[in-house]
Amino acid sequence: MGVVLVMYPPEVVGAIYQRGKRVKGRSWVAASCGPDATMERLGMALLHLSISARAPERVAAFLASVLGGRQLPFPPFPDSWIAFAEQDDGTAIEVYPLTHRLVDGGETIACEVGEADEGDTFVHAAIGSPMSRDAILSLADAEGWLARICNRGPFDCVEVWLEGRLLIEVLDPEMRRDYRANMTMDNWQKMFGI
Rank of each mutant, 00 (worst) to 15 (best):
V170R: 05
G128F: 08
L146H: 13
A135Q: 11
M131E: 14
G119K: 13
D156Q: 10
M131R: 11
D120S: 14
N187P: 00
L146I: 04
F155K: 01
C157M: 10
L166C: 09
P130E: 04
R177K: 14
C150W: 15
I136P: 04
E169W: 13
W145H: 06
D141T: 14
C157V: 11
L139D: 07
I127Q: 04
M131V: 01
V158Y: 10
D134N: 13
D134V: 06
G128A: 15
S132T: 15
A181N: 13
F155N: 02
Y179W: 12
N182P: 05
V158F: 08
E169Q: 09
L167S: 03
E169L: 02
N187R: 05
P173W: 15
R176V: 15
L166N: 05
G164F: 14
I127G: 02
G164N: 07
N151C: 11
R165M: 09
L171S: 02
R148C: 06
P173S: 10
E159F: 13
L139G: 01
D141K: 13
G119V: 03
A181P: 00
E174L: 08
D156K: 02
V123E: 08
I127C: 01
D186E: 15
M183S: 08
A126T: 13
P130W: 00
G144H: 11
L167W: 03
E159P: 01
E174F: 05
H124Q: 08
G128M: 08
T121V: 13
P154R: 02
A135E: 15
G153Q: 02
M175V: 06
E163P: 03
C150G: 05
A142L: 03
L171M: 14
C150L: 13
D178N: 13
A147H: 09
L171K: 14
N151E: 07
D172S: 15
A125C: 09
L171W: 11
E143P: 02
D141V: 03
G144L: 09
G144V: 04
D141C: 01
S132M: 02
S132R: 07
R152N: 00
A140C: 02
E163R: 06
G153V: 10
V170S: 04
I127W: 04
I136V: 15
R148Q: 12
W161H: 09
V158D: 03
R148G: 07
G128K: 14
E163I: 09
G164E: 08
R133N: 11
D156G: 01
E143Y: 14
R165W: 12
L137W: 07
